[in-house]
């Protein structure tokens, strides 16, 4: 995407929404899911994704499970009870924001 700043502001909401749908996910899986869903328009870098995941974990919104997969350890993230409530709130806020933005951007000039 040409303006990554627009994307950065919504990254935590996108991550929370994915976790709400998938149950649990690991870092690389999240990056691929976003890339596939947006046909490559949005690409999440490691430098943006992991600080977001760690912050959400520190805030008690996500919890971590570590499992051995294919000769290595893998950290899976899932929503906590607090996280489920927070996700619904954040999605609702984002929807409201997009709606307001559309009203402003596509404002029709008054006739007469």
């Amino acid at each position: 995407m040409s303006n990554s700043n627009l994307f950065k502001g919504s990254l935590s909401t996108i991550v929370l929404k994915l976790l709400k749908e998938e149950g649990r996910m690991y870092g690389y899986e999240i990056t691929q899911k976003v890339k596939d869903a947006t046909k490559g328009k949005f690409k999440i870098t490691e430098g943006a994704l992991y600080p977001t995941l760690h912050k959400l974990e520190a805030d008690g919104i996500l919890e971590v499970e570590v499992e051995r997969v294919d000769n290595r350890l893998r950290k899976y993230y899932r929503l906590t009870e607090k996280g489920t409530t927070e996700t619904a709130k954040k999605i609702s806020e984002l929807e409201e924001y997009i709606k307001t933005l559309q009203e402003v951007i596509f404002l029709k000039p008054k006739m007469g």
Partner: peptide, 8 residues
């Protein structure tokens, strides 16, 4: 551990 899994 997380970085290794990502790169792998």
């Amino acid at each position: 551990v997380e970085m290794v899994d990502h790169v792998a």
